[in-house]
Nucleic acid binder design. Sequence first.
DNA 1: CCGGGCACTTGTCAAATGACAAGAAATCAG
DNA 2: CTGATTTCTTGTCATTTGACAAGTGCCCGG
Lengths: 196, 196
Amino acid sequence: MTSEALIQFFLSTGRMNAAQAADVATSFSPRHLARHDFLLRAGTISDEYFFLESGIVRAFAHDADGNEVTTGLYSAGQVALEVSSFFNRTPSPEHLQALTDCQGWCITYAQLNGLFHARPEFREFGRGLLVRELARLKTRLLALSTATAAVRYEALLKSSPEILQQVPLKYVASYLGITDSSLSRIRSGSRGAEPA
Amino acid sequence: MTSEALIQFFLSTGRMNAAQAADVATSFSPRHLARHDFLLRAGTISDEYFFLESGIVRAFAHDADGNEVTTGLYSAGQVALEVSSFFNRTPSPEHLQALTDCQGWCITYAQLNGLFHARPEFREFGRGLLVRELARLKTRLLALSTATAAVRYEALLKSSPEILQQVPLKYVASYLGITDSSLSRIRSGSRGAEPA
DNA sequence: CCGGGCACTTGTCAAATGACAAGAAATCAG
DNA sequence: CTGATTTCTTGTCATTTGACAAGTGCCCGG
């Protein structure tokens, strides 16, 4: 089993060199998820930091009325993780479920902490990941309150086309903060546009 | 100058003991902001991690159309910080400005990193802060896509009444993702409600 | 004390989106 | 293959919210 993608991921942030990355990678275990498998269930404590090499994972929660809401969509090259549950050792507010078969790499909380303790450069990497995720959320928040649904859809289409191709539109809609009907209309409208 | 509030803040997460907290606090410097002073300007690199002992700081950015959008409101007991700029040493996408006179405690990036390096328990504390902020953003994101403006307003009123009292409503509105007119209507409506 | 902005409210109308429901189309399990 | 389920589209109408504009009151600096 080769962890090439994982090593590349460590290198991508520029905070680790090749030897360090390769070494850290040995602490991760390969992990496979079949379509519809749960990586984490709401109410339980996450103990798997999961790097996705292929496939798509969906995070979802329930709103005040009990409706399912897709809060995150993770594809290859990302870490699918409920941060607060994993790091605070508290019950997760949301589920993590594979939408397709997934291949990736896992590490437990204890192992990760061991690495953080032993390897300052990996610590930096870990912090970078949190910071990056925070920035991502901020961007989504801003878009949600200032951009129209159509613009948000176009942005997602541009930044993550693979998601649009593989994720049922109702989940995408919920991720974008709209209903599936609205998304359907947005898609039909943006295709033809008015010619002359 | 007493840093009692700062020490309490360190203790609040339960990851540091009293001696550790008091000791770490000595690395922070008192900092005062006059009303309307900028703690950070968009485009510059943040080098101040600022714990607020009193006062209110507003974070704001500009949307695609150039409109100002309030992205964060920080009050006493919180850290007013543009995380990605501070930790990645990159230009900030948003401004941080004092809405009232502010009193608090500051530390630079280099100093903070020094503490992280030397003190594992403070490192834990720092991570906890990022994780907490992330959870907060997630909550806001969920509310923005599932709750009505009125509900979001009520939630803010309940969780941070001090903000409603001190922040001009147009900033609150923008923070809630609505216009100031809408907020005004929500406020007038929720007072009387329909009697019989 | 005065003038000029802000801050806030309110009115009117339009645009964006949701709710609900009915079908068509694709997908999946037996 | 075939029926059942899920997914996606579309129609109709209601609701939420925004855009724009006018008007009142208040605060701040000279």
